[in-house]
Design a protein around this nucleic acid. Structure first.
Lengths: 340, 340
DNA sequence: ACTGGCACTCGCCAGAGCAGAGTGCCAAGC
DNA sequence: GCTTGGCACTCTGCTCTGGCGAGTGCCAGT
């Protein structure tokens, strides 16, 4: 059976009240707080239907109703509009982000900002190397058999790695090498570099072949294969908000999950478009996070996406507000990146 | 009055039992588990004295005794020997740390290792810039009015910063600039650089003066003034170990404190010698951490100290084991740094 | 199709009673 | 004088109980 408008209205009221009070909501309280124009008994009937359909449930026989994951899903998809941000929030975002001096700074400020505004745990992925292009490669001789490889990406990311050379190399050769490598790779998308690096090795003079191969392998490993995704995390203390009762059993696994970079990347790194993604409770693939919701989106200069960011909180969260905040922050960060 | 040997032995037994069981320990249980050679009644008398002296207390009238902060302090200072590490632990440390490719890698591996071995929250400070010397300064032209300043320290740390120049500068000048700057600063302790940087500005040709001043200010800000200390954190999930009852009220403030880099630096960054420092409960200056203990030490190549590392856990922790682990890890990391 | 009424279920709370752990003190013993 | 066994006392934690109240489902009436 399809749910008529009033039933949907009842569901919305339940979600809103439950999010606000954190307590199961009953039929009587519902008609008191919302102008539904019907009696509690009618609401009860609607609730019974909503429960049959799996959108709400009772924690125990004689308590109010609580939304299920499916209930939140329906709410998010069909019953809520994204809240416009308050001017205060807009100002907070701007104030927080101006004055960032480099990428590290931008990322750190962003993640703290997100945590503060949403009061959830915030995660920000550094611009992904896979989505970046090489701006410049620098080779710095440290000793005769060691050079420091510094890669500066167009997204502002800087990666460095020590290269141990098989044979000593005079500094002059390094200069020459730097020129060649940059000529070949500057401006290229990192994802496109492997064949170019390969070509570099093949084109190099026989005497330098082994050194070049060594450099090439570190280059490939650093930039592409072990393509290190980095991220920043903030607001774990927010996990203790709300009735810790709900969390008593779940706080531990959540904290554990948050320590695994791989997991976090899965959560916020899998962004292809700039669409906001909401994963509610059981929709999460990570078992430890089945009792949480994740709101994530991509960000980047203009319409391109270079990384993801988002927040993680209890399924019982203010979705419209959270979604609005996450989107707004992502847009601001994108603009900030576009300026460089 | 001075405490005789047996009373100290009783205190040691109380601490050890309480750490092991997490429950207040009574006189009867004590004589059963330890060969004290006296009766429970005698132990009770000793306990009464220990309580008068402030080393133990009763949570409530008819429960066993629990060590106070002062009791732990006495235990750590006079009643415990540092446990030698088990071969398994030694192997774990080695296995964990070999194969680290760069400083970031070393720090991340170390912090996870510490968290895993001690089962507490681990903190590792990156080698402090204040204690590093300049190995090389690299200037990379990004555009005509922007250069990327990359500083490589002898400790392996690499810092970068974008410099906006007031006037366009041809690439050739940058090469010259790089030579000059390195000549002046390479090998110098960062703390000693300010007058040298100043000299650089004064010595430079009048036409380049403004550009040089601009570069110098960023240089000073990055390397000395805003001397950015970085650190890594792991094992927050360990906070939920043990009876969360103790933590119910305290978990929140602890998590909050852990989010503040300034606080963490205070905890583990104030190291002058390689002596291990133990701060127990109220000895901590940070209010949020009055119910935790911190074991920290310095690390560095050879006998020099370049940074600090340590763990934070409940006051009720295995001090001998934790101290041993922290020291051992610090020594291994120091050795690792010495190799570079 | 909605509403008011009513019986029913069940979690929550406070109070009582009980068992157990642990203490402090005292008088006796080495 | 230190140590010991004994004993009365205190207090927590557990369980059981009954009463209360919130909330429901169902039914008959409009």
């Amino acid at each position: 059976m399809s749910l008529d408008d009033r039933k949907l209205e009842v569901l919305r009221a339940i979600v809103e009240d439950y999010v606000a009070t954190q307590e199961p909501v009953g039929s009587k309280a519902l008609v008191e707080r919302h102008q539904l124009g019907v009696s509690p008994a009618t609401v009860r009937n609607d609730m019974a239907v909503l429960e049959d359909e799996g959108y709400i449930r009772q924690p125990h026989t004689s308590a109010g109703r609580v939304p299920t994951d499916a209930g939140y899903r329906l709410f998010v998809d069909r019953l809520s509009r994204v809240k416009p941000l308050s001017p205060a929030e807009r100002r907070a975002i701007e104030r927080f982000l101006v004055g960032a001096v480099d990428l590290d700074d931008v990322v750190h400020r962003t993640v703290r900002l997100l945590a503060q505004l949403t009061r959830h745990v915030a995660v920000v992925q550094y611009p992904s190397l896979a989505r970046s292009a090489v701006r410049h490669l620098e080779l710095v001789p440290i000793s005769t058999t060691r050079i420091m490889l510094v890669m500066i990406a167009d997204t502002g990311r800087v990666e460095q790695r020590l290269v141990e050379l098989p044979t000593p190399v005079p500094p002059g050769d390094v200069t020459e090498l730097r020129r060649k490598v940059n000529e070949k790779l500057a401006g290229e998308k990192l994802a496109d570099t492997p064949p170019l690096v390969q070509a570099l090795v093949e084109e190099s003079a026989p005497g330098r072949r082994s050194m070049m191969a060594c450099l090439a392998s570190v280059l490939l490993e650093t930039l592409v294969e072990r393509s290190e995704e980095r991220l920043a995390l903030a607001g774990t203390a927010n996990l203790t908000r709300g009735s810790f009762l709900d969390f008593q059993g779940t706080l531990r696994p959540v904290l554990e999950a948050l320590e695994e970079e791989v997991i976090l990347l899965k959560l916020i790194g899998e962004v292809e478009s700039s669409a906001t993604r909401v994963r509610i409770g059981d929709e999460n693939e990570i078992d430890n996070l089945r009792s949480t919701s994740v709101v994530s989106t991509g960000y980047g200069p203009g319409t391109t996406i270079v990384g993801g960011l988002g927040v993680l909180g209890p399924t019982r969260m203010d979705y419209p507000g959270t979604i609005a905040t996450v989107r707004a922050v992502a847009r601001y960060v994108g603009d900030l990146l576009a300026q460089n």
